[in-house]
Design a protein around this nucleic acid. Structure first.
Length: 414
DNA sequence: CGTCGACCTCC
DNA sequence: GAGGTCGAC
């Protein structure tokens, strides 16, 4: 049985791509709520599924290392293998059900292998390594000092180019929900409806379910049993609607239509509102200008950018979505969605200590000057008590950011 | 066009 | 209430 590849056991299992950490940091990019399927299987090692294959990734200062596990596959139909390796396996695949039933019985298992060049290309495509993140940071920094402060700490946060089906159906699960539960739900979704790919140590990895699997009439009840709640119906109905009124290639085809059209098209699906549509556009349909606006981003816009601060608006309306999106696009440019993800990442509870750690080296001072400017009305109490003494109680996140950035500057001066 | 309640669970 | 959406005013 295969084991999770570990870098310390030698480079024999690993192939590499040149990539500095300012361009990509796995622990941020893979755990900031873009994809919900990556797990840190050992320190600094991330295991997940790309293109119907299981990968473990890790990195050193200037190199991204990867290992691709061999899939167990149905031994007949040689063309099937190529298909699985080359195209996304999330598309229609009639053989999936058969495979699922046979995988246990198959004695002489065959393996699917992919040429190294294709693997490297898959990885470059998934991380969009052709996009120069450092250049974007430079551009954003000139336009927006606040973003610059955050981005100087949170380097290497990239947008993934995910499979549209996985992205759409994962994000339908995100409504009224938080990351840890979403991760569990997506995992159960793949387990229940996806094809097994391979087993590594104690874990069986599954592909994301096909549209056909998701559209089956039994799916709603099944997913409700698995704790999906009202989202179960959205998932099944959206899959059904896509297949019946558009066809299996429709989602991927939205990559080549303009952002407003793609956004509008997605919103015709049940369970897909403005926020989810923007997420899918940004994270899987090549719409780098899409800015997903949730309550959280709205807080950021008001608090850090004084957006509509005088407004009496209670709820996030469609118009507000558009306005905020436009505001940030005007500020950050055509990769506004990428910029937003940096701010979003920096606000996640689990990454607070990146800023706190930097605060540690800073002797306490400069408490008062910006204190009053910062709005303390942030709904969520982000600064948990875990922040310990390094973070003043009652001090807002924003203040902490500023403080942290100052620390960085001081460090560099030293 | 903006507001409100309901929708499923889990912590 | 949580990284929302839908349907009804």
């Amino acid at each position: 049985m295969a084991k999770h590849a570990v870098f310390s056991s030698g480079t024999r299992l690993w192939k590499s791509v040149d990539c500095v950490k300012s361009q990509l940091r796995l622990e941020l990019t893979l755990a900031c709520g873009q994809s919900f399927r990556w797990r840190e299987t050992s320190e600094g090692h991330w295991t997940g599924v790309i293109g119907g294959r299981v990968w473990t990734l890790t990195q050193t200062d200037d190199t991204l290392w990867y290992h691709v596990y061999k899939n167990k596959v149905e031994q007949t139909k040689g063309c099937d293998r190529k298909r699985r390796a080359g195209t996304s396996s999330l598309e229609e695949n009639k053989s999936e059900k058969k495979f699922k039933g046979r995988v246990k019985e198959e004695e002489d298992e065959q393996v699917a292998v992919t040429p190294v060049k294709e693997e490297e290309q898959m990885l470059r495509d998934y991380f969009q390594l052709n996009v120069n993140l450092e250049e974007l940071h430079t551009h954003w920094g000139k336009a927006d000092p606040h973003l610059k402060q955050i981005a100087d700490i949170f380097t290497g946060v990239r947008m993934l180019r995910q499979d549209p089906t996985e992205c759409l159906f994962s994000f339908i699960c995100t409504s009224n929900n938080h990351i840890s539960r979403i991760q569990g739900m997506v995992e159960r979704l793949c387990q229940a409806l996806g094809s097994p790919l391979c087993q590594v140590d104690q874990t069986t990895y599954y592909d994301f379910p096909s549209l056909t699997a998701l559209a089956d009439s039994s799916v709603e009840a099944r997913l409700r049993d698995l704790g999906f709640g009202y989202r179960a119906r959205f998932l099944q109905q959206s899959a059904k609607q896509i297949l019946e009124t558009h066809g299996p290639q429709w989602l991927k085809g939205l990559r080549s239509v303009p952002y407003p059209q793609a956004r509008h098209a997605l919103r015709t699906l049940p369970g897909v509102g403005t926020k989810v549509a923007d997420c899918v556009c940004l994270m899987s349909l090549d719409k780098a200008e899409a800015v997903p606006v949730d309550t959280h981003v709205w807080q950021i816009a008001k608090r850090d950018y004084k957006f509509a601060s005088g407004s009496t608006q209670k709820t996030i309306t469609d118009k507000l979505h558009r306005d905020i999106g436009e505001f940030f696009r005007n500020l950050w440019g055509p990769y506004a969605g990428w910029a937003q993800s940096v701010l979003f990442c920096a606000d996640l509870k689990k990454f607070q200590k990146m800023k706190e750690t930097l605060c540690l080296v800073q002797p306490k001072k400069e408490e008062e000057d910006e204190e009053e400017e910062v709005r303390t009305t942030c709904k969520k109490t982000k600064m948990k008590t875990e922040g310990k003494e390094t973070v003043k109680h009652g001090k807002t996140k924003s203040a902490c950011c500023k403080k942290a950035t100052k620390c960085v500057k001081n460090e560099r001066v030293l």
